[in-house]
Write a protein that binds this DNA or RNA. Structure first.
Lengths: 348, 348
DNA sequence: CTGAAAGCGCTAACAT
DNA sequence: ATGTTAGCGCTTTCAG
């Protein structure tokens, strides 16, 4: 029955009441007799009436939509993140407007600005966004939560992955497994996660293997960079016994470099990554890694955002940290059973 | 400088012109002197003015937003799909509203209905959506394109993956490689892609190995189902020499069942999947598969949708089919170099 | 309990 | 070339 657009007036006429009553009924505001209710509901159903959200937004100032600004939509991380956000959002009756593919300040600015008026709140993950940026581009009454950001602005709470602790735990694990030193392959320079993971590596080395020299190779989170780093590592005079890569893709690339050179993992060199992407389970040997519940990150962000939207300012600290867990598989040479314990989602 | 909400009136006042002139300048409608232009732009910039999209939508009837209704956001397929849609959308200045996680007719209905008025067009991928559904739930003037759908409704064009041809090509490839018969692991019963792939399998067998008996095991696109199917296959009196799974995850599960049983792939049994997910490249042996350019699917959908939105009815056929390509890796035993040829995106 | 009426911020006639 | 004005569909006082 191909629906045309019926307005509130049409419903009012059909129900023989005023538009005000229609509005009251449809918004459950009460103050209407059962008969009026009935008439309105019948008329609305009959006409397939759906309120115009633009008109409603115009007057209420609410859109029931939240915006997600991300650098990209590519890969497991963002996929999971959006999924977590979406799940939590629709559970609260909120729509999700996504904006991605911005790799510069201008793009980020445009993304944030064009969302103004279209959303009631924003979740932002971007290395180009800082407190000053937000103050300049966001209306003061538009709540926003930052993901994976060093920003510490009282107005914009942020949720971060506990990269430092995760990296530290993994390095300690490898050290404990008997490898006297661990080499590290970094992520891209500007990336906050990458920086934190390196910090964790350094901290763990300083604490648990203070005499061992630090071997740090530059990578950029890509498989290719891992491959190059792997070759570089093999070419060194002092070939490492264990390697910790800043993320899984890098570790996988490194693994291929080792395989190609006939180096056995973990017998000759132990290896570990970070993220616990799906592939980690499937490479041979399976990759030990640090797992992050990305969907929980998205969910937490949305929850925090809705609190903000309801006026509850972030109580106490405005920065939350999401726990990471070491997942021991074959590549790190700790010879354990291959079953990664399922940890419940948890905010530290 | 924490922006408050400036309206068109504020800009008009600041620029000492009428709101009409402001509108004209900001919408590039011409009929304004350079001076007015200047004054308006300065004022707008100064006040950080951003037009209220709700108000604009209310009067123009356009939202510059397109909606994507998907069953889920999980996994590579949807991630890539959204990415393709998003890329094409933002290239045209369109926003993307996503809605997912509906696995029932009610959910789908709610998703589609709540998007009414919020979007200028929709891209829908759902097994619960058919022509009748759309006629009942979509305003007649809201364009929509269907993905992976058997619906053949002149009002709703659809874009499909050429599952039949892809499956057929893969089965033929395996047959040509010397395996006299190929077993098949199906996907979930209600899934359109899965059905088409099975059709392709049957067609290829009928054409190229008419005397070989058909071995068909039930699966459901999950790794577990593939694992079970693999064990089932091994338990059979007539152990197959080649297995084609309806998707990659199933093939991976099957691969693990074989490994566990000490069966070598491809020496003892050849194996192939469908989708070319990232993992396919990383399992050992690497998985031969049928590749689909999912991002292109999303892009094509958006392009088709914008044509519709611009009033160009779909000329000629209203169903397009996206080509698939056989990717030969190690698991199918065709001993070729491991380099998958890069095909340009192409609509058949 | 219900209806009339005033806008929300903007665009698009219609005047000037 | 510029300004005035009438709504777009809806919520929300404010009267009755």
């Amino acid at each position: 029955m191909t629906t045309k657009k019926a307005t509130i007036k049409d419903v009012a006429r059909e129900a023989k009441v005023s538009i005000a009553s229609v509005s009251r009924v449809l918004n459950g505001l009460g103050g209407v007799t059962a008969e009026t209710q009935d008439a309105v509901r019948k008329a609305a159903a009959h006409l397939h009436y759906v309120p115009d959200s633009a008109a409603r937004s115009l007057i209420t100032g609410r859109t029931h939509t939240i915006g997600a600004v991300l650098p990209d939509l590519y890969g497991e991380f963002f996929s999971e993140l959006i999924r977590g956000i979406d799940l939590a959002a629709r559970a609260r009756g909120l729509h999700l407007l996504v904006s991605s593919s911005h790799d510069g300040v201008e793009d980020a600015t445009a993304a944030v600005r064009t969302m103004r008026g279209r959303v009631d709140g924003m979740i932002i993950l971007s290395q180009f966004v800082d407190g000053e940026f937000l103050d300049r581009n966001l209306p003061s009454d538009l709540p926003a939560v930052l993901l994976d950001s060093p920003v510490d602005n009282p107005r914009y709470p942020s949720i971060n992955i506990d990269n430092i602790a995760g990296a530290q735990a993994m390095v300690k694990h490898m050290l404990d497994a008997g490898h006297e030193s661990v080499a590290f392959i970094t992520g891209p320079a500007g990336n906050y996660d990458a920086q934190e993971r390196e910090k964790g590596y350094r901290a763990a080395m300083a604490q648990h293997a203070p005499k061992a020299p630090l071997q740090i190779i530059t990578g950029d989170f890509t498989e290719e960079s891992g491959y190059r780093a792997g070759r570089e590592l093999l070419a060194q005079a002092r070939r490492p016994r264990a390697v910790f890569a800043a993320n899984d893709m890098t570790a996988v690339g490194c693994l291929y470099a080792f395989k190609e050179a006939g180096i056995r993992v973990p017998e000759d060199i132990a290896l570990a990554g970070f993220d616990d992407i799906l592939i980690a389970r499937y490479v041979s040997p399976s990759l030990s890694t640090v797992s992050v519940s990305i969907a929980d990150l998205g969910k937490s962000a949305l929850l925090l955002l809705t609190e903000l939207m309801e006026g509850k300012g972030p109580q106490g600290s405005n920065t939350r940290t999401l726990r990471c867990d070491v997942v021991v598989r074959e590549s790190c040479g700790a010879h354990q059973t291959n079953v990664a314990t399922k940890h419940p989602p948890a905010l530290v």
